[in-house]
């Protein structure tokens, strides 16, 4: 059967990809307390998809995560980030002034935490969506990686 000579690669990738995705979310939600943040999490998430595309084929990956979804995700991410700024302005503060989100005085931290978490979600969407879109655009021009390329 075609594809059997990559069986070890496929089995290991199948085990690794969920772990990579979980690690991306770990990095995402521990950005406030540890190394890394939404940029790194977005890249790791995109790399999980790309590994899937390299091992299981671009067509299968595009069917699971369609290109229209990744490019919309990227735009939505930038809108989420910019929307936090507009939210702060609607509450009477400056653009992206997190203190104003819940109308707190100096020393109040709820707005800071909420603002940072929301903009990091926006960055995650924008980065992972944009990088996956770039990969689709590049890899979509050739059919597949042929066996003699490895």
């Amino acid at each position: 059967m075609k594809g059997d000579h990559h069986m070890i690669l496929r089995v290991i990738a199948k085990c690794l990809i969920p772990l990579i995705v979980i690690y991306a979310f770990y990095v995402q939600f521990h950005g406030e307390v540890g190394a890394g943040g939404a940029f790194q999490a977005g890249v790791v998430l995109a790399v999980a998809l790309i590994l899937n595309a390299l091992v299981f084929g671009l067509t299968a990956t595009m069917r699971a995560v369609p290109p229209w979804f990744t490019r919309s995700l990227s735009a939505v991410g930038v809108m989420v980030y910019a929307g936090v700024g507009v939210w702060a302005m609607l509450k009477g503060g400056h653009y992206l002034e997190y203190q104003a989100l819940f109308g707190e005085g100096p020393g109040g931290h709820d707005g800071q935490h909420a603002g940072i978490i929301i903009i990091e979600v926006g960055v995650l969407f924008a980065v992972s969506g944009a990088l996956t879109t770039i990969f689709y655009a590049l890899a979509g021009r050739v059919a597949e990686i042929r066996d003699e390329d490895w």
Binding site: M62, R63, G122, A126, I134, A137, G140, R141
Partner: peptide, 22 residues
């Protein structure tokens, strides 16, 4: 973030979405 988004947009404008291969 806008730069990353714009980079994705620029690549798509130059190369297309890659959906034709699908």
């Amino acid at each position: 973030t806008a730069v990353v988004f714009t980079a994705g947009l620029a690549v798509v404008l130059l190369l297309g979405f890659g959906e034709r291969s699908l």
